[in-house]
Design a protein around this nucleic acid. Structure first.
Lengths: 236, 236
DNA sequence: TTGCAGAAGTGACTTCAATCACCGTTGTTG
DNA sequence: CAACAACGGTGATTGAAGTCACTTCTGCAA
């Protein structure tokens, strides 16, 4: 049996984890999984470097990555955090005028499946509804980015931070008896680079939110949201 | 002959103006144009109000619109400026979880063609490559939004304004002997609401750029970029 | 376990865009 | 064309986040 990118590699092809392929049959999924190249990245290492414009779809099979841009004044702006089943590289693939200045870094030990443009094209030709799925996903990504714009446009950094915590609660949070537990995987500086403030401001505001009894920080990589309604009320 | 949404309504169906339909035959274009509803909006009037989530694709046939969101602190953040041939409403149509808080206003006298979801679905089923075109366009929109994020993340307002001028030069500019002429159609306040600063800051910075001989303002709705290279150098 | 480097917290200071207030300009409409 | 409202320019003030500098904490490796 061929090696696939999966953790349980002899049971499930990686494509099973990816929502855009969910409409396909077992054989088709296996076929695509066989076309894919698989790479591992350790925490902190670059998956895509600024300036790279390879015609490839990158699918996160395990782990977590950050997608970011660098501003003219040299700051990192994080655009997206992607986990298992999500993809990136769509700008270079589907955009009329590609060559984006985007970087992608592994936030933890990560496995990526790579599909070349020619393979994607073939898959889409044989299964037209993949195009619909892609359209849905990219539209979703657009909605997320527009929300990020809205958040960055909000002048008050506290509001921005609250919004981020609410977003993370939904995306990465798990209910516990103490509240919603969030695995950050981001450093304070990276949090800052996501909501457009400085590291120091994040420190101060998180302390403030602890004093206000909104959250509890466990170490530097975990947050517990004690009362999410309280947080929501705080930003009115 | 049926009425279409076109300026030369007895010659060309509105669909001819829209890149996503360019791959279709004359008859197909006419058929879609006949399915569409057509509405006119005068300058300043709302096309879509915050909260509206009608399952409709809106195609700009004539004029110009602004797509915006409102931040929690009550400010308008302009996301996109759309002209003839461009569309909006994609978030409600293709997004798994719709209901976006987005507003659209006519910036000048504008004509819009409306296509219902069921019609779009039918068109996509009959012409699968429309889905590809849509994917390309939405990806483009995503790239634009990510650039906006990058711009808003840039702390220096001068740099943000220069970027906007460069963007507008490309999208709305026409070469003249005096330089690149830009039809703004935006008020100073709307410019401010696009790059995330205040009206006053726009005033001051535009004056500064005039003093620096980068631009000339003609009235309040036109800019002439005297030397675009100078502008580009200014932001390094 | 110690030692070290990178990350995070924190106080003091600074800065620059926001805010406020006001006046001048434009353009719309009866 | 007069009158008014909306828009735009500009000076003075201010306040909150950025910046700087330093300490403390954390996690990793020898």
């Amino acid at each position: 049996m061929k090696k696939t990118c999966c953790q349980h590699q002899f049971v499930t092809p990686c494509t099973k984890k990816v929502p855009i392929f969910h409409s396909l049959s077992e054989e088709e999924m296996q076929k695509i999984a066989d076309m894919a190249k698989h790479e591992s990245f350790q925490k902190g290492s670059p998956v895509v470097q600024e300036g790279d414009s390879s015609q490839t779809l990158f699918i996160v099979n395990k782990g977590r990555v950050k997608v970011s841009k660098t501003t003219v004044d040299g700051k990192e702006q994080i655009l997206h955090l992607l986990t298992c089943g999500e993809f990136f590289g769509e700008l270079n693939l589907f955009n009329g005028s590609p060559s984006q200045s985007i970087s992608v870094y592994a936030l933890e030990s990560t496995e990526i499946c790579l599909l070349r443009k020619q393979d994607i094209d073939q898959v889409m030709e044989e299964n037209p509804n993949i195009a619909f799925k892609l359209l849905e996903t990219v539209t979703n990504r657009l909605a997320h980015t527009e929300n990020l714009v809205q958040n960055l446009a909000t002048k008050d950094p506290e509001v921005r931070l609250v919004h981020m915590i609410l977003e993370f609660s939904e995306k990465f949070g798990t209910e516990t008896e103490k509240g919603i537990e969030i695995d950050l995987t981001l450093s304070r500086e990276e949090i800052a680079n996501y909501i457009g403030v400085t590291r120091e401001t994040i420190s101060r505001k998180l302390s403030k939110f602890e004093d206000l009894n909104f959250i509890t920080a466990i170490g530097n990589k975990q947050l517990i949201v004690k009362d999410i309604d309280l947080l929501e009320e705080y930003v009115i």
